[in-house]
Design a protein around this nucleic acid. Structure first.
Length: 510
RNA sequence: GGUCGGUUCGUCUAGCUGGUCCAGGACGUGAGAUUCUCAUUCUCAAAAUCAUGGGUUCGAAUCCCAUACCGACUACCA
């Protein structure tokens, strides 16, 4: 068992956008696969033709790619077990369902959904819960007590049928979960789940899932906690097929909870929670648009880092992890057992960390189009200079322009508050003198400005705060911006002197 | 209702085999320091009777039981 090749799978169903809980499940699968030199498989579970949403599969693939979660085998890259879309594997499932009927582990049931519905309502109106199980199945139209001939006839004349698992009564199933440990359950509390539907010739999740995991040689199933209740069925299915010896190990991840109210986060939460629930922007078939982390300005590395720590922790105080570091540090037994609420503030913090550490060239590529969009131009050299300064003050790229627009638009007025605070005493005279010093500096570079001006300031014993704040007011028009000489270098000598002259003329002399 | 799972600062969590935990870290919050504005950075602070009640034990956040609360599941959905 321990020698077994690690093969994990992420198996979403294309019923809409993938929410962050799903992304986290995919991530944990991926980390586990990579850490163990195993394979990561993407299987599309589209066995519910009625809930299929156009574009969802594309969205899932794009999302994983943006996150940096690489797929080894799947609908796009193919692989030894292709196809990886269950709708394209239709042909293989019936055989297995029939095999179960043959071996007495399953049976045909001819009830229509409507019949079951009325039965269910009837029971409920009498205060009882309806469960399709050992107690009731003998009374319904099933192959369990119908003659072989009648079963054949019904099928032949096109009656709708379904194959249900024959859940044994009063057996204890002992299961092992990598996160929760031993879990036991009595089968009498379980019902006869539908495995195959004749209506669309498609299996249900349970059958398709077990068959495909077996066929695809999956070694570990890492999925959401909502699947824990069906784990006994899955165990029994493996047993019925005679596959228990190669049955995968299971790990059920705690759920991601809604931040305010209660309940698990769902894709229907879309855009209503005050933070994105989806990695990428999603336009639903009904036209409803939900924002995404990518469009909100999150770096994929930050998004992944944040998600990885939501439910898992390394046991150390390290919080910033690259994908490779996550791969090295991840372990399933350090995944928590309880559901986690998502914290938008912490997500911001993670993004800010990546922003501050981001490569200037990467940020400049984001910045330059913004400058152009605002009707200005900027040399690549200056973009790099600007971005290296403003990134320390930003959390998201969309703050860039607000943090630097004054470099492209000279002040037309001077902030009153800043004037009162900084344009007083010797300030006007000092700035006038500084203008002359700057005028003589050649080349007009950061290093040169610092060298000359700092010497001048020291020599004349001028308080740093006095010069710089007044200087800032003159250049920017208010008390904002980054380093003065850094800004002047971007502005260039001509613009710097022009702004000084204008300020000296517009502001009070004393 | 039934079955299963969970329960440590507002939030994410450390705490795995009981003592060094009158519970540690991070986010957020407050205060201060540094600084040419802002931001960064740094320091400090407030913040959890470890859901509650019983055990077991010399000793429990850590083991056991019960209760409460929360969640998942309970479809011819995944």
């Amino acid at each position: 068992m321990s020698e077994r090749k690690v093969r994990v799978r992420f198996a979403p169903s294309p019923t809409g956008a993938l929410h962050i809980g799903g992304v986290r499940t995919a991530l944990y699968n991926y980390l586990f696969a990579r850490q163990n030199g195993g394979q990561m498989i993407l299987r599309i579970e589209d066995t519910d033709s009625t809930r299929y949403v156009e574009g969802a599969e594309r969205y899932i693939i794009d999302s994983l790619r943006w996150c940096g979660i690489e797929i080894d085998e799947g609908v796009e890259q193919g692989g030894p077990h292709a196809p990886y879309r269950q709708s394209e594997r239709k042909a293989i499932y019936l055989k297995y369902a029939l095999q179960l009927v043959e071996s007495g582990n399953a049976y045909y049931a001819f009830d229509t959904p409507e019949e079951l519905d009325t039965l269910r309502k009837e029971m409920e109106s009498r205060g009882k819960t309806f469960s399709y199980n050992y107690a009731i199945r003998e009374k319904l139209a099933t192959s369990l007590h119908l003659s072989k001939q009648e079963v054949q006839e019904r099928i032949a004349r096109g009656d709708q049928w379904v194959i249900r698992f024959k859940m044994p009564a009063d057996q204890t199933v002992a299961m092992e979960d990598l996160i929760r440990g031993e879990v036991e359950i009595n089968t009498s509390t379980l019902d006869d789940k539908v495995l195959y539907k004749s209506a669309d010739s498609l299996p249900t999740y349970h059958l398709a899932n077990i068959v495909d995991d077996h066929l695809m040689e999956i070694s570990h199933v890492i999925r959401g906690e909502e699947w824990l209740p069906s784990l006994p069925l899955h165990y029994l299915l493996y047993r019925a097929f005679g596959w228990s010896d190669t049955q995968p190990e299971f790990a059920h991840l705690p759920l991601l909870l809604k931040p305010s109210g209660q309940g698990k986060l769902s894709k229907r939460d879309g855009d209503k929670l005050g933070f994105p629930v989806f990695p990428l922007r999603w336009v639903a078939p009904n036209g409803e648009v939900s924002r995404g982390y990518r469009e909100d300005g999150y770096f994929p590395e930050a998004f992944i880092n944040m998600l990885a720590l939501l439910g898992w922790n390394p046991g150390t105080e390290q919080e910033i992890f690259s994908m490779q570091e996550l791969i090295d540090a991840f372990s399933i037994d350090r995944v928590g057992k309880s559901g986690a609420r998502f914290n938008p503030d912490k997500a911001h913090w993670f993004n800010a960390q990546y922003m501050h550490a981001a490569d200037d060239r990467r940020l400049a590529a984001l910045y330059e189009p913004m400058v152009v969009a605002h009707g200005h131009s900027c040399s690549h050299e200056n973009a790099l200079r600007i971005v290296s300064q403003i990134k320390m003050r930003a959390t998201f790229p969309d703050e860039f322009w607000g943090l630097s627009s004054f470099l492209f638009e000279a002040p037309v007025a001077y902030d009153d508050k800043a004037q009162k605070k900084y344009w007083k005493g010797d300030a006007p005279k000092v700035v006038a003198a500084l203008r002359e010093v700057l005028a003589m500096i050649e080349p007009f570079t950061l290093a040169e400005m610092e060298r000359v001006c700092h010497a001048w300031i020291a020599e004349n014993e001028i308080p740093m705060g006095l010069v710089m704040n007044a200087f800032r007011l003159a250049i920017v028009g208010e008390a904002k911006g980054f380093g003065m000489f850094e800004m002047c270098e971007v502005l260039g000598k001509e613009q710097t002197l022009a702004r000084l002259d204008r300020a000296l003329a517009a502001l009070p002399k004393e």
